[in-house]
Design a protein around this nucleic acid. Structure first.
Lengths: 245, 245
DNA sequence: TAGTGGTCTAGACCACGCG
DNA sequence: GCGTGGTCTAGACCACTAA
């Protein structure tokens, strides 16, 4: 286990973070084989000139990510299974882009209107409050993938159509200084009616995945309510879960 | 903020855990209002006779759960939005039971057979290896909810039919000393064929939610591959996400 | 018994947000 | 400037596991 670990005390990057990044990259590159022991914390601390709590903090962050497992009396091991990524709060646009699908977006509607009861409840605003409505069609390789209807508070964001066609909604929010914190989602299924089928290029009766999602910022304010339809023939939700210890 | 916090040093429960539990229950009961500040860590430590790192550990665990937010220069606040629970690796049986649905299970098949290519790949065993197959129908209020097909290594578990009808698979695994660690899931949708419709009490062409899941223990071994069908008219996946900071 | 991680202490200095 | 959380140290004792 001759890993070349080192920390730079002149760097503004926290020491524990430098160490966890080096360990993570070593695991990803296979320098640290699955199942291999990491060596005990005290020795590691001494070798790097760090205190044990700092080393523990680095290791703990990787345990939280699911890359390492600690066992009392045994040691710290690299997990065997390939942990990919937990389900992220990413936009479909970013997902598709990351998958090299060259996404495109058509803005079908972009208006301000009064919140219906359902939308008002989801955003926790009074019924009738003005909310922004963005309705988009997401395409990949020129084929429709999803129909997305998003409601958001009017004062949060005022995106131009051009931005909406080239950037995911979450990225726009982050750019506007919104710190996303959590989201509540419901995933279900139903069959397409005639209008939905026409819009998505499916036949009537084709299976669709439905998702409703309310997203909150770190103050607990609801910043977005989305109600989306995905073509089940073209899309599925794929994600990793970590068991809470 | 006159919270009655106290720790018992004679208890075997770790001090940070005692504190985090008390804070969590105070938040749940509304004793700590959303948005309220928690008071600074040093003062809190002094009041409880704990060191600051111990108090930080307690607070950090609640930040990780999404119940608190820390801001430098501001303080630690209770999050406004109601964080329920992140998606857990729970069995449908436990989910239904928790929801007071009085679930029941019919074991349709319980055999050992040679792994097909798909199952072998999911469990990371050679094709043709013997694996246990459990096929069950899950009911709630006497109505079919889901059809579940699970494959697991033969040496992992040898459940009796009675156990399978009264206990979720994950609970059986935990009882057998298996430490679940992570799972990889795919959720999609399709329409029911004639046989599926008959089994689930739906019409042909009814929408179904599909889920494939591979579960790993903490050594990285695949301990279960499941391929499940849910009636979309009766079931949807409902869960909470936390944004990774 | 020896070695590991789990917990805990009593300090220290720094970076950031606000008035 | 002041108070907050963010990071870090150099120890200590305990609980669990394996040989």
């Amino acid at each position: 286990m001759d890993l070349q670990l080192s920390v730079d005390r002149a760097s503004p990057v926290p020491l524990y973070f430098q160490l966890s990044q080096q360990l993570e990259s070593a695991i990803e590159r296979g320098k640290l084989a699955p199942g291999s022991l990491l060596g005990n914390e005290i020795e590691l601390a001494g070798r790097l000139g760090l205190s044990r709590p700092t080393v523990r903090q680095a290791i703990q962050s990787l345990v939280d990510k699911g890359l390492l497992v600690r066992r009392r009396g045994i040691g710290t091991q690299v997990v065997h299974s390939q942990v990919k990524r937990p389900m992220e709060l990413s936009s479909l646009y970013d997902d598709l882009e990351a998958a090299g699908q060259r996404p495109a977006t058509q803005v079908l509607r972009h208006t301000v209107q009064e919140a219906t009861a359902q939308v008002a409840a989801a955003l926790a605003v009074p019924e009738g409050t003005e909310v922004r409505l963005v309705e988009r069609l997401r395409l990949a390789h020129g084929e429709p993938m999803a129909h997305m209807r998003n409601h958001l508070p009017v004062d949060l964001l005022a995106p131009g159509e051009a931005e909406l066609e080239t950037t995911g909604l979450y990225r726009l929010m982050r750019g506007a200084g919104v710190t996303l914190h959590s989201a509540r989602q419901t995933v279900g299924a139903r069959v397409a009616d005639a209008a939905e089928a026409r819009l998505l290029g499916e036949d009537e009766g084709a299976p669709l995945l439905t998702m409703q999602r309310t997203t909150y910022d770190d103050t607990g304010r609801a910043v977005e309510y989305g109600s989306h339809l995905y073509r089940a023939s073209r899309y599925s939700f794929d994600f990793q879960l970590l068991v809470r210890p």
